[in-house]
Amino acid sequence: MKKFTLRSVCVFAFGFVLMGCEKDNDSATPFAANDTKNFGTSPTSCEIIEFDGYNDIVTGGGAVTTVYSEGTPVRISAQLRSARGNNIDTERGVYLNNNAAVLYNTSQPDNRNKNYRTPNNNAIRPMGNVLTVGRQQGNSTAIYNKGSRLEMDFSEMGTITLNGIHVLDIEQNEADSKLDLIDKNGKIIKTFNLPVTGAYGATRLNTEETPGVAKIRVTFGGEGTSNGSGAIDVIEFCRD
């Protein structure tokens, strides 16, 4: 269970990212165990972004900056929530400027988080690399659990229709974590609460085939608090 500020794990570029668990949440879709490549995804999805295709992921300064889908870049950034210093976006909380988007390899958990190895009771499939928020420290990654936000910018595709997104490691005390879908003018189209998966669990959030999305923003933990972590994977969408 997450009772500490930073979690150190080694990052490798392999593994399998599709996963699932059943949750009592209207926005969380239980997974059917068929077709391993598309396990737990909508058959209407035209493209799926996952984070095991190392050659399609660009990093800078230890942080993930870009992932490619069918040759088109999707820009990625993340910020740590902080009570002081170098803050941005004070209307939605105090965040540090530096990009803190990192990969976490759930196939190689560290000793402190050995129960993150999948499959487990709350994540019935292996998950491989997932996208989260933290700091790169040499050959390892420290995951931040004091609150953060993560953004994926699809504007170089124009806009997309978002079908679903897989959510990991949201505990009950992080139930106020959320997903904002944002249009090309920066207006929030829809907001979804992230489903509680339990420690190291995973499930699919059904985003109701929402069109006109230029950016998604995931906030881990409630704004104004010093609590919250998690991860995302398997972004399902079609270009508008």
Rank of each mutant, 00 (worst) to 15 (best):
G222C: 00
Q79T: 13
H166N: 11
D180K: 08
V218R: 00
P73A: 15
G128T: 06
G128A: 07
N120G: 08
T210L: 10
I76S: 01
T159R: 09
V234Y: 02
G198V: 11
M19D: 13
F220Q: 06
D169A: 08
S140C: 11
S140G: 06
N145G: 12
T203C: 15
T141C: 04
S155R: 15
T118Y: 09
N206V: 01
D56H: 13
A78N: 01
N139I: 02
Y95K: 01
M157R: 14
I57M: 01
D240K: 10
V133L: 03
I49G: 01
F16T: 08
R84S: 03
S82G: 02
N105K: 01
T219Y: 09
T207F: 06
E151T: 15
V196G: 00
G230E: 03
G147I: 09
F154V: 06
G201H: 10
E22K: 14
G228K: 10
T161Y: 02
A123R: 11
T141G: 01
T66A: 07
Y68N: 10
V133P: 01
E156V: 00
E223S: 12
V9H: 02
T159Y: 05
G228E: 09
S107N: 12
Y144A: 04
N139H: 07
N25A: 15
V130K: 05
A13G: 04
L168W: 06
N193R: 12
L194Y: 10
S82F: 00
T159A: 12
F31I: 09
G201N: 08
K190M: 06
G198M: 12
C10M: 08
V9I: 13
P43Y: 09
N122A: 14
E171C: 05
V74L: 08
G221W: 06
D110P: 03
M127Y: 02
N99Y: 04
N99G: 04
N121D: 14
G222T: 04
T5C: 01
G128D: 02
F192T: 10
E50G: 05
E47D: 12
L194D: 06
T191E: 14
T41M: 14
N120H: 07
N87V: 15
I235L: 15
C46V: 00
D153M: 10
E22H: 09
G40L: 12
G212H: 07
T210C: 08
I48N: 08
V58W: 09
I48P: 00
C238I: 11
Y144Q: 07
V234Q: 09
K215R: 15
I76D: 03
L205D: 01
N25T: 07
F154H: 04
G230L: 07
Y68W: 06
S45V: 13
E91I: 12
K190N: 11
P126E: 12
N121P: 02
F14P: 00
T161R: 15
K215F: 05
N111S: 10
T41N: 13
N206W: 02
F192Y: 15
D26C: 08
V9A: 08
N115W: 11
S69F: 04
L179Q: 03
R204I: 11
N122F: 13
T66R: 11
T44E: 15
N227P: 00
A202Q: 04
L150R: 00
K2I: 15
V64F: 05
L162C: 09
Q136L: 05
N122G: 12
I232W: 07
D35F: 04
G224Q: 11
F154D: 03
